[in-house]
Write a protein that binds this DNA or RNA. Structure first.
Length: 477
RNA sequence: GCGCCCUUCGUCUAUCGGUUAGGACGCCAGAUUUUCAAUCUGGAAAGACGGGUUCGACUCCCGUAGGGCGCGCCA
Protein backbone atom coordinates (compact mmCIF):
# COMPACT_ATOMS: atom_id res chain seq x y z
CA UNK A 1 0.00 0.00 0.00
CA UNK A 2 1.42 3.35 -0.99
CA UNK A 3 0.36 6.36 1.01
CA UNK A 4 -2.68 8.18 -0.33
CA UNK A 5 -1.96 11.20 -2.45
CA UNK A 6 -2.40 14.65 -0.95
CA UNK A 7 -2.00 17.63 -3.25
CA UNK A 8 -2.65 21.25 -2.53
CA UNK A 9 -3.31 24.51 -4.26
CA UNK A 10 -1.70 27.41 -2.45
CA UNK A 11 -2.52 30.80 -3.93
CA UNK A 12 -1.50 34.05 -2.35
CA UNK A 13 -4.49 36.36 -2.06
CA UNK A 14 -2.87 39.42 -3.53
CA UNK A 15 -5.05 39.44 -6.62
CA UNK A 16 -7.61 37.40 -8.47
CA UNK A 17 -7.27 33.80 -9.57
CA UNK A 18 -5.38 34.23 -12.82
CA UNK A 19 -5.32 31.76 -15.63
CA UNK A 20 -2.01 30.16 -14.67
CA UNK A 21 -3.20 29.67 -11.12
CA UNK A 22 -6.41 28.17 -12.39
CA UNK A 23 -4.47 25.61 -14.40
CA UNK A 24 -2.24 24.78 -11.44
CA UNK A 25 -5.34 24.26 -9.33
CA UNK A 26 -6.84 22.11 -12.08
CA UNK A 27 -3.78 19.89 -12.33
CA UNK A 28 -3.66 19.44 -8.56
CA UNK A 29 -7.33 18.65 -8.52
CA UNK A 30 -7.13 16.21 -11.41
CA UNK A 31 -4.20 14.36 -9.92
CA UNK A 32 -5.89 14.08 -6.55
CA UNK A 33 -9.12 12.85 -8.11
CA UNK A 34 -7.25 10.51 -10.44
CA UNK A 35 -5.48 8.84 -7.57
CA UNK A 36 -8.40 8.93 -5.20
CA UNK A 37 -6.45 11.24 -2.95
CA UNK A 38 -7.17 14.66 -1.58
CA UNK A 39 -6.61 18.19 -2.71
CA UNK A 40 -6.15 20.75 0.03
CA UNK A 41 -6.41 24.49 -0.23
CA UNK A 42 -4.04 26.81 1.52
CA UNK A 43 -4.28 30.58 1.40
CA UNK A 44 -0.78 32.02 1.58
CA UNK A 45 -1.63 35.26 3.26
CA UNK A 46 1.60 35.89 5.13
CA UNK A 47 2.15 39.11 3.21
CA UNK A 48 -0.14 41.23 5.34
CA UNK A 49 0.39 44.31 3.24
CA UNK A 50 -0.91 42.85 0.03
CA UNK A 51 -3.35 40.16 1.10
CA UNK A 52 -6.99 41.12 0.93
CA UNK A 53 -10.28 39.48 1.81
CA UNK A 54 -11.61 40.48 -1.58
CA UNK A 55 -8.85 38.49 -3.24
CA UNK A 56 -9.58 35.47 -1.07
CA UNK A 57 -13.23 35.68 -2.04
CA UNK A 58 -12.34 36.04 -5.71
CA UNK A 59 -10.11 32.97 -5.60
CA UNK A 60 -12.66 30.77 -3.87
CA UNK A 61 -15.34 32.04 -6.21
CA UNK A 62 -13.18 31.38 -9.27
CA UNK A 63 -12.40 27.83 -8.17
CA UNK A 64 -16.04 27.04 -7.50
CA UNK A 65 -17.10 28.47 -10.82
CA UNK A 66 -14.53 26.27 -12.54
CA UNK A 67 -15.91 23.29 -10.70
CA UNK A 68 -12.76 22.67 -8.71
CA UNK A 69 -13.45 21.68 -5.14
CA UNK A 70 -11.08 20.96 -2.29
CA UNK A 71 -11.06 18.71 0.73
CA UNK A 72 -11.52 20.14 4.19
CA UNK A 73 -11.40 23.75 5.20
CA UNK A 74 -8.91 26.14 3.62
CA UNK A 75 -5.78 26.60 5.72
CA UNK A 76 -4.78 30.20 6.29
CA UNK A 77 -1.04 30.36 6.42
CA UNK A 78 -0.89 33.50 8.52
CA UNK A 79 -2.72 31.74 11.34
CA UNK A 80 0.13 29.25 11.56
CA UNK A 81 2.85 31.83 12.15
CA UNK A 82 3.60 30.55 15.65
CA UNK A 83 4.20 27.05 14.39
CA UNK A 84 6.54 28.42 11.71
CA UNK A 85 8.50 30.38 14.28
CA UNK A 86 8.69 27.27 16.42
CA UNK A 87 10.38 25.38 13.60
CA UNK A 88 12.74 28.25 12.93
CA UNK A 89 13.84 28.16 16.54
CA UNK A 90 14.17 24.40 16.48
CA UNK A 91 16.49 24.81 13.51
CA UNK A 92 18.39 27.45 15.41
CA UNK A 93 18.85 25.15 18.36
CA UNK A 94 19.95 22.20 16.30
CA UNK A 95 22.59 24.43 14.74
CA UNK A 96 21.05 24.23 11.29
CA UNK A 97 20.25 27.94 11.35
CA UNK A 98 21.74 31.10 12.80
CA UNK A 99 20.96 34.71 13.59
CA UNK A 100 22.03 37.35 11.13
CA UNK A 101 22.32 41.00 12.12
CA UNK A 102 23.05 42.51 8.74
CA UNK A 103 21.03 45.63 8.05
CA UNK A 104 18.98 46.23 4.94
CA UNK A 105 21.46 48.85 3.72
CA UNK A 106 24.35 46.51 4.33
CA UNK A 107 22.66 43.82 2.25
CA UNK A 108 21.83 46.08 -0.65
CA UNK A 109 25.36 47.30 -0.72
CA UNK A 110 26.63 43.74 -0.65
CA UNK A 111 24.40 42.74 -3.54
CA UNK A 112 25.31 45.76 -5.59
CA UNK A 113 28.96 45.10 -5.18
CA UNK A 114 28.51 41.47 -6.11
CA UNK A 115 26.71 42.46 -9.29
CA UNK A 116 29.32 45.03 -10.14
CA UNK A 117 32.00 42.39 -9.79
CA UNK A 118 30.00 39.97 -11.87
CA UNK A 119 29.21 37.63 -9.04
CA UNK A 120 25.76 36.29 -8.18
CA UNK A 121 24.00 38.59 -5.70
CA UNK A 122 23.88 36.04 -2.95
CA UNK A 123 24.15 36.59 0.77
CA UNK A 124 27.80 36.14 1.71
CA UNK A 125 27.13 34.24 4.95
CA UNK A 126 28.87 36.92 6.97
CA UNK A 127 27.09 35.95 10.19
CA UNK A 128 27.19 32.20 9.68
CA UNK A 129 30.24 31.61 11.82
CA UNK A 130 30.48 34.90 13.61
CA UNK A 131 30.23 34.92 17.36
CA UNK A 132 26.79 36.12 18.54
CA UNK A 133 28.52 38.27 21.11
CA UNK A 134 29.57 40.53 18.24
CA UNK A 135 25.94 41.33 17.59
CA UNK A 136 25.24 45.03 17.37
CA UNK A 137 23.07 46.59 20.06
CA UNK A 138 19.37 46.94 19.43
CA UNK A 139 19.37 45.28 16.02
CA UNK A 140 16.67 42.61 15.78
CA UNK A 141 18.18 39.69 13.90
CA UNK A 142 16.68 37.50 11.22
CA UNK A 143 17.16 33.75 11.22
CA UNK A 144 18.92 32.21 8.26
CA UNK A 145 19.24 28.57 7.36
CA UNK A 146 22.66 27.02 6.85
CA UNK A 147 22.88 25.73 3.31
CA UNK A 148 25.57 23.11 2.70
CA UNK A 149 28.74 24.84 1.48
CA UNK A 150 29.52 22.30 -1.19
CA UNK A 151 28.00 19.35 -2.92
CA UNK A 152 24.71 19.61 -4.70
CA UNK A 153 21.01 19.48 -4.01
CA UNK A 154 18.96 17.28 -6.29
CA UNK A 155 15.36 17.96 -7.10
CA UNK A 156 13.67 14.83 -8.39
CA UNK A 157 10.86 16.27 -10.40
CA UNK A 158 8.04 14.33 -12.08
CA UNK A 159 7.88 16.90 -14.86
CA UNK A 160 11.35 18.40 -15.08
CA UNK A 161 13.27 15.24 -14.39
CA UNK A 162 16.32 15.16 -12.16
CA UNK A 163 17.58 18.71 -11.71
CA UNK A 164 20.68 19.43 -9.72
CA UNK A 165 21.80 22.67 -8.15
CA UNK A 166 25.27 23.36 -6.82
CA UNK A 167 24.91 24.21 -3.15
CA UNK A 168 27.32 27.09 -3.52
CA UNK A 169 24.65 28.81 -5.63
CA UNK A 170 22.06 28.48 -2.89
CA UNK A 171 22.65 31.10 -0.26
CA UNK A 172 21.70 31.10 3.39
CA UNK A 173 18.22 32.47 2.88
CA UNK A 174 16.09 33.98 5.60
CA UNK A 175 13.51 31.75 7.24
CA UNK A 176 12.35 34.05 10.01
CA UNK A 177 12.13 37.81 9.64
CA UNK A 178 13.41 40.23 12.23
CA UNK A 179 9.84 40.82 13.36
CA UNK A 180 9.50 37.13 14.09
CA UNK A 181 7.26 36.30 11.13
CA UNK A 182 8.14 33.45 8.80
CA UNK A 183 9.18 33.87 5.21
CA UNK A 184 7.46 32.06 2.41
CA UNK A 185 10.28 29.55 2.10
CA UNK A 186 9.84 28.34 5.68
CA UNK A 187 6.08 28.58 5.76
CA UNK A 188 5.51 26.39 2.70
CA UNK A 189 7.75 23.67 3.94
CA UNK A 190 6.27 23.58 7.41
CA UNK A 191 2.72 23.74 6.11
CA UNK A 192 3.20 21.15 3.39
CA UNK A 193 4.75 18.85 5.96
CA UNK A 194 2.11 19.44 8.62
CA UNK A 195 -0.72 19.14 6.13
CA UNK A 196 0.65 15.82 4.94
CA UNK A 197 1.14 16.99 1.38
CA UNK A 198 2.69 14.20 -0.66
CA UNK A 199 2.75 15.86 -4.09
CA UNK A 200 3.61 19.46 -4.79
CA UNK A 201 2.36 20.57 -8.20
CA UNK A 202 3.07 24.21 -8.96
CA UNK A 203 4.47 26.60 -11.55
CA UNK A 204 8.05 26.04 -12.65
CA UNK A 205 8.97 29.49 -11.39
CA UNK A 206 9.31 27.59 -8.13
CA UNK A 207 11.85 25.09 -9.38
CA UNK A 208 14.83 26.76 -7.74
CA UNK A 209 12.76 27.25 -4.62
CA UNK A 210 12.36 23.49 -4.48
CA UNK A 211 16.10 23.19 -4.02
CA UNK A 212 16.05 25.75 -1.20
CA UNK A 213 13.07 24.10 0.39
CA UNK A 214 14.82 20.75 0.23
CA UNK A 215 17.46 22.22 2.50
CA UNK A 216 14.83 22.88 5.16
CA UNK A 217 13.28 19.44 4.73
CA UNK A 218 16.69 17.88 5.21
CA UNK A 219 17.55 20.02 8.19
CA UNK A 220 14.33 18.91 9.84
CA UNK A 221 14.77 15.31 8.79
CA UNK A 222 11.45 15.36 6.97
CA UNK A 223 10.62 13.51 3.76
CA UNK A 224 10.60 15.76 0.74
CA UNK A 225 7.38 15.57 -1.27
CA UNK A 226 7.19 14.54 -4.88
CA UNK A 227 7.75 17.64 -6.96
CA UNK A 228 6.06 18.55 -10.25
CA UNK A 229 6.97 21.94 -11.64
CA UNK A 230 4.68 22.69 -14.52
CA UNK A 231 5.59 25.16 -17.25
CA UNK A 232 4.12 28.61 -17.15
CA UNK A 233 1.51 29.99 -19.51
CA UNK A 234 2.67 32.84 -21.69
CA UNK A 235 0.78 35.49 -23.60
CA UNK A 236 0.13 35.22 -27.35
CA UNK A 237 3.42 37.04 -27.98
CA UNK A 238 5.42 34.50 -26.02
CA UNK A 239 6.27 36.91 -23.27
CA UNK A 240 4.83 37.03 -19.84
CA UNK A 241 1.09 37.21 -19.50
CA UNK A 242 0.05 40.83 -19.29
CA UNK A 243 -3.22 42.48 -18.38
CA UNK A 244 -3.97 42.95 -22.01
CA UNK A 245 -4.16 39.26 -22.85
CA UNK A 246 -4.17 36.37 -20.48
CA UNK A 247 -3.40 37.66 -17.03
CA UNK A 248 -7.05 38.13 -16.39
CA UNK A 249 -8.86 36.61 -13.48
CA UNK A 250 -11.10 33.67 -14.24
CA UNK A 251 -14.03 35.95 -13.46
CA UNK A 252 -13.06 37.94 -16.53
CA UNK A 253 -13.48 34.81 -18.63
CA UNK A 254 -16.83 34.23 -17.03
CA UNK A 255 -17.82 37.78 -17.91
CA UNK A 256 -16.69 37.25 -21.51
CA UNK A 257 -19.18 34.42 -21.74
CA UNK A 258 -16.98 31.36 -21.50
CA UNK A 259 -18.36 28.19 -20.01
CA UNK A 260 -16.34 26.76 -17.13
CA UNK A 261 -16.26 23.36 -18.82
CA UNK A 262 -14.78 24.95 -21.94
CA UNK A 263 -12.13 26.84 -20.01
CA UNK A 264 -11.24 23.71 -18.11
CA UNK A 265 -10.95 21.70 -21.29
CA UNK A 266 -8.79 24.41 -22.81
CA UNK A 267 -6.52 24.65 -19.78
CA UNK A 268 -5.99 20.93 -19.40
CA UNK A 269 -4.64 20.76 -22.96
CA UNK A 270 -2.05 23.42 -22.23
CA UNK A 271 0.99 21.36 -21.43
CA UNK A 272 -0.80 18.07 -21.15
CA UNK A 273 -2.22 15.74 -23.73
CA UNK A 274 -3.75 12.35 -24.18
CA UNK A 275 -2.86 11.35 -27.72
CA UNK A 276 -5.04 13.14 -30.22
CA UNK A 277 -7.96 13.71 -27.88
CA UNK A 278 -9.13 17.31 -27.79
CA UNK A 279 -12.47 17.16 -26.03
CA UNK A 280 -12.56 15.73 -22.54
CA UNK A 281 -15.43 15.14 -20.21
CA UNK A 282 -14.62 15.66 -16.56
CA UNK A 283 -14.57 11.90 -16.04
CA UNK A 284 -12.16 11.37 -18.92
CA UNK A 285 -9.83 14.08 -17.69
CA UNK A 286 -9.72 12.48 -14.28
CA UNK A 287 -9.23 9.02 -15.67
CA UNK A 288 -6.45 9.92 -18.07
CA UNK A 289 -4.61 12.71 -16.30
CA UNK A 290 -1.17 11.97 -14.98
CA UNK A 291 1.86 13.99 -14.00
CA UNK A 292 4.29 12.16 -16.25
CA UNK A 293 2.63 13.31 -19.47
CA UNK A 294 2.99 16.98 -18.67
CA UNK A 295 5.31 18.72 -21.11
CA UNK A 296 8.19 20.93 -20.12
CA UNK A 297 7.83 23.86 -22.45
CA UNK A 298 5.74 26.93 -21.86
CA UNK A 299 2.46 27.30 -23.74
CA UNK A 300 0.99 30.43 -25.25
CA UNK A 301 -2.52 31.42 -24.49
CA UNK A 302 -4.70 31.30 -27.61
CA UNK A 303 -8.12 32.92 -27.44
CA UNK A 304 -9.16 31.53 -30.82
CA UNK A 305 -8.89 27.97 -29.61
CA UNK A 306 -10.64 28.73 -26.35
CA UNK A 307 -13.42 30.33 -28.34
CA UNK A 308 -13.74 27.33 -30.60
CA UNK A 309 -13.99 24.99 -27.63
CA UNK A 310 -16.50 27.28 -26.02
CA UNK A 311 -18.63 27.18 -29.17
CA UNK A 312 -18.45 23.43 -29.08
CA UNK A 313 -19.61 23.30 -25.49
CA UNK A 314 -22.38 25.79 -26.13
CA UNK A 315 -23.65 23.76 -29.07
CA UNK A 316 -23.59 20.50 -27.19
CA UNK A 317 -24.96 21.79 -23.90
CA UNK A 318 -28.56 21.13 -23.02
CA UNK A 319 -30.90 24.11 -23.02
CA UNK A 320 -31.25 23.75 -19.27
CA UNK A 321 -27.52 23.91 -18.76
CA UNK A 322 -27.29 27.00 -20.94
CA UNK A 323 -30.05 28.83 -19.14
CA UNK A 324 -28.32 28.00 -15.89
CA UNK A 325 -25.00 29.31 -17.24
CA UNK A 326 -26.69 32.45 -18.49
CA UNK A 327 -28.25 32.99 -15.09
CA UNK A 328 -24.89 32.78 -13.38
CA UNK A 329 -23.40 35.06 -16.01
CA UNK A 330 -26.01 37.83 -15.94
CA UNK A 331 -25.02 39.34 -12.57
CA UNK A 332 -21.45 39.63 -13.84
CA UNK A 333 -22.37 41.48 -17.00
CA UNK A 334 -22.17 45.19 -16.40
CA UNK A 335 -23.36 46.28 -19.84
CA UNK A 336 -26.30 43.97 -19.83
CA UNK A 337 -27.96 44.71 -16.54
CA UNK A 338 -30.94 45.68 -18.63
CA UNK A 339 -31.15 42.16 -19.94
CA UNK A 340 -31.37 40.80 -16.45
CA UNK A 341 -34.24 43.10 -15.58
CA UNK A 342 -35.97 42.42 -18.88
CA UNK A 343 -36.02 38.70 -18.32
CA UNK A 344 -39.61 38.38 -17.26
CA UNK A 345 -40.94 34.84 -17.04
CA UNK A 346 -42.59 35.27 -20.41
CA UNK A 347 -39.49 36.52 -22.19
CA UNK A 348 -37.50 33.89 -20.42
CA UNK A 349 -39.78 31.24 -21.85
CA UNK A 350 -39.31 32.64 -25.34
CA UNK A 351 -35.58 32.73 -24.83
CA UNK A 352 -35.61 29.09 -23.83
CA UNK A 353 -37.75 28.32 -26.84
CA UNK A 354 -35.32 30.03 -29.19
CA UNK A 355 -32.25 28.49 -27.61
CA UNK A 356 -31.87 25.46 -29.91
CA UNK A 357 -31.54 27.78 -32.90
CA UNK A 358 -29.39 30.32 -31.11
CA UNK A 359 -26.80 28.05 -29.62
CA UNK A 360 -25.74 26.74 -33.01
CA UNK A 361 -24.09 29.98 -33.88
CA UNK A 362 -22.78 31.46 -30.65
CA UNK A 363 -19.16 31.19 -29.59
CA UNK A 364 -19.69 32.79 -26.21
CA UNK A 365 -22.63 33.25 -23.90
CA UNK A 366 -22.36 36.97 -24.46
CA UNK A 367 -22.89 36.39 -28.17
CA UNK A 368 -25.73 34.06 -27.36
CA UNK A 369 -27.51 36.64 -25.27
CA UNK A 370 -26.77 39.24 -27.87
CA UNK A 371 -28.26 37.13 -30.64
CA UNK A 372 -31.44 36.73 -28.61
CA UNK A 373 -31.89 40.46 -28.25
CA UNK A 374 -34.63 40.51 -30.88
CA UNK A 375 -36.85 38.72 -28.37
CA UNK A 376 -37.03 41.67 -26.01
CA UNK A 377 -36.17 44.43 -28.45
CA UNK A 378 -38.71 47.24 -28.62
CA UNK A 379 -40.31 48.31 -31.88
CA UNK A 380 -39.36 49.92 -34.10
CA UNK A 381 -36.17 47.90 -34.39
CA UNK A 382 -32.92 49.56 -35.25
CA UNK A 383 -31.21 47.80 -38.13
CA UNK A 384 -27.53 47.14 -38.30
CA UNK A 385 -25.71 48.28 -41.43
CA UNK A 386 -25.86 44.95 -43.23
CA UNK A 387 -29.52 44.44 -42.49
CA UNK A 388 -30.33 47.93 -43.70
CA UNK A 389 -28.50 47.16 -46.92
CA UNK A 390 -30.59 44.09 -47.54
CA UNK A 391 -33.87 45.88 -46.98
CA UNK A 392 -34.08 47.52 -50.39
CA UNK A 393 -37.33 48.88 -51.74
CA UNK A 394 -37.80 45.66 -53.64
CA UNK A 395 -37.21 43.56 -50.54
CA UNK A 396 -39.65 45.71 -48.61
CA UNK A 397 -42.35 45.20 -51.18
CA UNK A 398 -41.94 41.46 -50.79
CA UNK A 399 -42.16 41.92 -47.04
CA UNK A 400 -45.47 43.70 -47.41
CA UNK A 401 -46.83 40.97 -49.65
CA UNK A 402 -45.66 38.22 -47.35
CA UNK A 403 -46.97 39.95 -44.26
CA UNK A 404 -50.35 40.08 -45.86
CA UNK A 405 -50.30 36.38 -46.62
CA UNK A 406 -48.87 35.38 -43.26
CA UNK A 407 -51.62 37.33 -41.54
CA UNK A 408 -54.16 35.00 -43.06
CA UNK A 409 -52.51 31.85 -41.79
CA UNK A 410 -54.90 29.77 -39.68
CA UNK A 411 -52.01 28.35 -37.69
CA UNK A 412 -48.93 30.19 -36.45
CA UNK A 413 -46.03 27.79 -36.24
CA UNK A 414 -42.57 27.51 -37.69
CA UNK A 415 -43.84 24.84 -40.07
CA UNK A 416 -46.81 26.89 -41.22
CA UNK A 417 -44.88 30.10 -41.83
CA UNK A 418 -42.12 28.23 -43.59
CA UNK A 419 -44.59 26.54 -45.92
CA UNK A 420 -46.19 29.87 -46.69
CA UNK A 421 -42.91 31.63 -47.38
CA UNK A 422 -41.75 28.74 -49.55
CA UNK A 423 -44.96 28.95 -51.50
CA UNK A 424 -44.47 32.67 -51.95
CA UNK A 425 -40.92 32.18 -53.15
CA UNK A 426 -42.03 29.56 -55.62
CA UNK A 427 -44.82 31.72 -57.00
CA UNK A 428 -42.60 34.71 -57.47
CA UNK A 429 -39.76 32.57 -58.78
CA UNK A 430 -37.36 33.83 -56.13
CA UNK A 431 -34.80 31.81 -54.30
CA UNK A 432 -35.83 31.07 -50.74
CA UNK A 433 -32.85 32.96 -49.40
CA UNK A 434 -33.90 36.02 -51.33
CA UNK A 435 -37.11 36.29 -49.33
CA UNK A 436 -35.99 34.72 -46.08
CA UNK A 437 -33.11 37.10 -45.56
CA UNK A 438 -35.22 40.29 -45.67
CA UNK A 439 -37.64 38.61 -43.29
CA UNK A 440 -34.80 37.92 -40.90
CA UNK A 441 -33.61 41.49 -41.09
CA UNK A 442 -37.03 42.97 -40.54
CA UNK A 443 -37.71 40.75 -37.57
CA UNK A 444 -34.35 40.93 -35.82
CA UNK A 445 -32.51 43.90 -37.26
CA UNK A 446 -29.58 41.60 -38.05
CA UNK A 447 -28.38 39.42 -40.86
CA UNK A 448 -26.91 36.89 -38.52
CA UNK A 449 -29.60 35.45 -36.42
CA UNK A 450 -31.34 32.17 -35.79
CA UNK A 451 -33.52 30.39 -38.32
CA UNK A 452 -36.18 32.90 -39.45
CA UNK A 453 -39.10 30.57 -39.03
CA UNK A 454 -38.09 29.95 -35.45
CA UNK A 455 -37.98 33.69 -34.99
CA UNK A 456 -41.51 34.03 -36.32
CA UNK A 457 -42.72 31.34 -33.99
CA UNK A 458 -40.88 32.73 -31.00
CA UNK A 459 -42.17 36.23 -31.56
CA UNK A 460 -45.74 35.17 -32.20
CA UNK A 461 -48.17 36.36 -34.83
CA UNK A 462 -48.94 39.80 -33.50
CA UNK A 463 -45.40 40.97 -32.82
CA UNK A 464 -44.04 39.43 -36.01
CA UNK A 465 -46.62 41.08 -38.23
CA UNK A 466 -46.12 44.40 -36.48
CA UNK A 467 -42.37 44.27 -37.08
CA UNK A 468 -42.90 43.25 -40.67
CA UNK A 469 -45.22 46.12 -41.34
CA UNK A 470 -42.84 48.53 -39.61
CA UNK A 471 -40.27 47.73 -42.27
CA UNK A 472 -42.63 47.20 -45.17
CA UNK A 473 -44.07 50.68 -44.83
CA UNK A 474 -40.93 52.67 -44.15
CA UNK A 475 -38.83 53.58 -47.19
CA UNK A 476 -35.41 52.09 -47.71
CA UNK A 477 -32.58 53.91 -46.03
C1' G B 1 26.23 38.60 -14.38
C1' C B 2 25.42 33.54 -12.30
C1' G B 3 22.17 29.19 -12.04
C1' C B 4 18.13 26.28 -13.90
C1' C B 5 14.50 25.13 -17.66
C1' C B 6 12.63 25.26 -22.67
C1' U B 7 12.84 25.13 -28.52
C1' U B 8 8.03 19.93 -33.96
C1' C B 9 3.10 23.71 -38.77
C1' G B 10 1.15 30.95 -36.86
C1' U B 11 -0.91 28.46 -31.97
C1' C B 12 -1.88 23.86 -28.67
C1' U B 13 0.24 19.22 -29.33
C1' A B 14 1.41 13.47 -31.08
C1' U B 15 5.98 10.97 -31.96
C1' C B 16 9.31 8.22 -26.90
C1' G B 17 16.05 5.66 -33.03
C1' G B 18 13.31 3.46 -38.70
C1' U B 19 6.24 7.33 -39.98
C1' U B 20 4.49 10.08 -46.78
C1' A B 21 6.28 13.68 -39.16
C1' G B 22 -0.24 12.62 -37.14
C1' G B 23 -4.36 15.49 -34.81
C1' A B 24 -6.75 20.15 -33.20
C1' C B 25 -7.47 25.65 -33.55
C1' G B 26 -6.76 29.41 -37.07
C1' C B 27 -6.20 30.29 -42.42
C1' C B 28 -7.55 29.20 -47.86
C1' A B 29 -10.87 26.57 -51.45
C1' G B 30 -15.22 23.75 -52.41
C1' A B 31 -20.04 21.34 -50.88
C1' U B 32 -24.43 22.22 -48.24
C1' U B 33 -27.61 26.05 -46.27
C1' U B 34 -33.08 30.10 -44.52
C1' U B 35 -26.18 34.12 -48.75
C1' C B 36 -24.88 33.98 -41.13
C1' A B 37 -23.26 30.21 -37.90
C1' A B 38 -22.83 25.09 -37.74
C1' U B 39 -21.64 20.75 -40.68
C1' C B 40 -18.84 17.99 -44.57
C1' U B 41 -14.67 17.58 -48.18
C1' G B 42 -9.99 19.22 -49.80
C1' G B 43 -5.49 22.44 -49.31
C1' A B 44 -1.19 25.37 -47.69
C1' A B 45 1.67 25.01 -43.18
C1' A B 46 6.76 22.31 -38.71
C1' G B 47 11.48 19.27 -36.33
C1' A B 48 15.88 26.97 -34.38
C1' C B 49 21.15 26.40 -36.09
C1' G B 50 26.02 23.67 -36.08
C1' G B 51 28.63 19.49 -34.76
C1' G B 52 28.82 14.54 -33.14
C1' U B 53 26.96 9.07 -31.69
C1' U B 54 24.49 5.43 -34.96
C1' C B 55 23.40 1.29 -40.55
C1' G B 56 19.68 5.10 -39.46
C1' A B 57 18.13 10.80 -35.71
C1' C B 58 12.68 15.29 -34.52
C1' U B 59 13.95 11.56 -31.03
C1' C B 60 20.58 10.45 -27.63
C1' C B 61 25.23 13.80 -26.55
C1' C B 62 27.95 18.62 -27.04
C1' G B 63 27.95 23.60 -28.62
C1' U B 64 25.51 28.17 -30.60
C1' A B 65 21.31 31.23 -30.97
C1' G B 66 16.59 32.61 -29.13
C1' G B 67 12.98 32.49 -25.14
C1' G B 68 11.45 31.74 -19.96
C1' C B 69 12.23 31.45 -14.71
C1' G B 70 15.11 32.24 -10.31
C1' C B 71 18.91 34.99 -7.56
C1' G B 72 13.98 40.12 -1.68
C1' C B 73 13.25 40.64 5.91
C1' C B 74 7.36 39.08 -1.89
C1' A B 75 4.82 34.80 -2.41
Amino acid sequence: MTAPVVTRFAPSPTGFLHIGGARTALFNWLYARHTGGKMLLRIEDTDRERSTDAAIAAILDGLSWLGIDWDGEPVYQFSRAERHAEIAHALLESGAAYRCYASAEELTEMRERARAEGRPPLYDRRWRDRDPSEAPEGVPPVIRIKTPLDGETIVEDRVQGRVSFANKDLDDFIILRSDGTPTYMLAVVVDDHDMGVTHVVRGDDHLTNAARQSVIYQAMGWDVPSWSHIPLIHGPDGAKLSKRHGALGVEAYRAMGYLPEALRNYLVRLGWSHGDTEIFSTEEMIEWFDLDQIGRSAARFDFAKLENLNGHYIRTSSDERLMEAIDTLLPHLDNNVTVATTLTPEIRARFAHALPGLKERAKTLVELIDSAEYIWAKRPLSLDAKAAGILTDEARSHLAAMAERLAKLPQWSAEATEAEVRAYAEETGLKLGKVAQPLRCALTGRTTSPPVFDVLETLGREESLARLSDQASSPAA
